[in-house]
Simulated scan of single mutants.
Amino acid sequence: MKFVDEAEIHVAAGSGGNGCVSFRREKFIPFGGPDGGDGGNGGSVWLVADENLNTLIDFRHQRRFRAQRGENGMSRQMTGRNGEDVRITVPVGTVVVNVETGETIGDLTAHGQELMVARGGDGGRGNINFKSSTNRAPRRATPGWEGEQRTLQLELKLLADVGLLGFPNAGKSTFIRAVSAATPKVADYPFTTLAPKLGVVSIEPHKSFVIADIPGLIEGAADGAGLGIQFLRHVQRNRLLLHLVDLAPMDGSDPAEQVRAIERELEQFDPELLGRPRWLVLNKADLLPEEERQARAEAVVAELGWTAPWFLASAISREGTWLVAQKAYDFLDSFRVRAQEAKDVSEDVRFGSGELQPPPGTVDH
C-alpha cells in the first residue's frame, strides 16, 4: 500500500436543532400553556486511532466530513433527537493540527484513543423554558447553535523504538532486513526507500522492539531538499537513533563528514534531536580488507570525537548486526525500567512515602 503521511481534511459538526414554540391544546383545556420542547444537540466529529492502519491514503479520496444536525424540538415538551457523531479512523501516531491557527489539537498515540476535533452545537430552547409568573404564554424560542468547523492537517509520525539515520545508500534497508522480518526494497542507488518501513526485532520470546527504516537524508533536508522534511518528523518519536554510515563510500567521501552533515540537518529541524541517544554503526565493513576494518573505524570515531557507543558491522553479511540489536534491546529495557521507577516515585510523592495513604479529604471507613 502506498505510504502517505500527510493529509488535509475539513470537518463540520452538526448544528443544534431549533427550540419549538408550541402551546398545549386539548379538549376542555383551550389555554394549556406553553409546551414547546428543546432542540437536539448536533453530532460531533471524532478521530479514533486504529493500530490496523498505517497510512493516510484514504483521505486522498474523501476530505470532507460532516456530522448530523440535531432535530428541532416538538410540542408536548418533546426534545429533538441528537445528531449522530462521526468517527474517523486514523493510524496510531497521527498528530492533528488546526490549519487556521497552527495549533496542535492532539496527538493520537494509543489504539482506540479518541479525539474530538469538532463539537456539535447545542440545541435551542423551546418556549416552555421562558414561562414565568409575568409571561404565561411566551412566544419565544431560541435557534440551535452552529456546530464547529475546522480544516485539519493530519501528520503521521511513526511509533518506533529505534530509528535508522543515514545518507541514501548507507545500508539502512539492508540493516533492517538483517535484524527483522521486514523486507524493504534494496538497491544500489539513492532514495531506494521512498517511505518509512517498520520492522519488529525479536531478540527472544516476549523480548522485541520496533525499528523504523527512515528514508535517507541529504544536506538541505531540513529546508526541503531531496525528500525534504517530510520524513524528518518520524525520528522525533524514537527513543534511540542508530546512525548508519558507509565506512568505505564508493565516491571516496569522508564518512566523518557525512555524520556531521546529518547532525546539522537534525539540529536545524529540531535541536532536541541532537540530545537524543544516538549510536554510530559503521556499516559495509565487508568492503574493506579484514586487517584494515578496525583501524579505519577507530580513525572515523577519533575524528568525530565520538563518545557514545559505536559498532563495526556489515549488514549485507549480517556481521555485527545482531550485537547492535541486542544492545539496543538492553538499552530500551533499561529505559522502560527507569520510566517505571520514575512513575513509582511520582506515586510515592503523591500519596506519601511508605504505605499508600488516601488522598486528603477522604475518610477511611
Rank of each mutant, 00 (worst) to 15 (best):
Q230C: 12
R233F: 11
E204R: 14
E219F: 04
H234T: 13
A212F: 06
D213F: 10
N238R: 09
D246W: 02
P249M: 02
G228T: 10
G228D: 11
H206C: 12
E204Q: 14
G220I: 02
Q236C: 11
P215A: 04
Q236L: 13
A221F: 01
R239V: 13
L217S: 10
D246N: 07
G252W: 08
L240Y: 09
I203D: 01
L198P: 01
Q236P: 03
H243G: 03
D251W: 00
I203L: 09
V201M: 10
E219W: 00
P249T: 09
H206T: 14
V201T: 06
P249R: 04
F231P: 04
H206Q: 15
L240P: 04
D246I: 00
R239H: 14
G252C: 11
N238G: 01
E219I: 08
V235F: 04
L232W: 10
L241A: 11
A248D: 02
P205L: 13
H243P: 00
L242N: 06
L232F: 12
L240F: 10
I218T: 03
L242C: 02
H206Y: 14
V245P: 02
F231Q: 06
R237I: 03
P205N: 07
L247A: 06
L244I: 11
I211K: 02
I203G: 05
Q230T: 15
A225F: 06
R233H: 14
G216I: 02
P215M: 08
I214W: 04
F209D: 06
A221W: 04
L198A: 07
H206D: 15
G216L: 03
M250C: 05
I211D: 00
L232T: 09
S202Y: 14
P215N: 07
I211Q: 02
A212P: 03
G224D: 02
I214L: 07
H243E: 12
D251H: 01
Q230F: 09
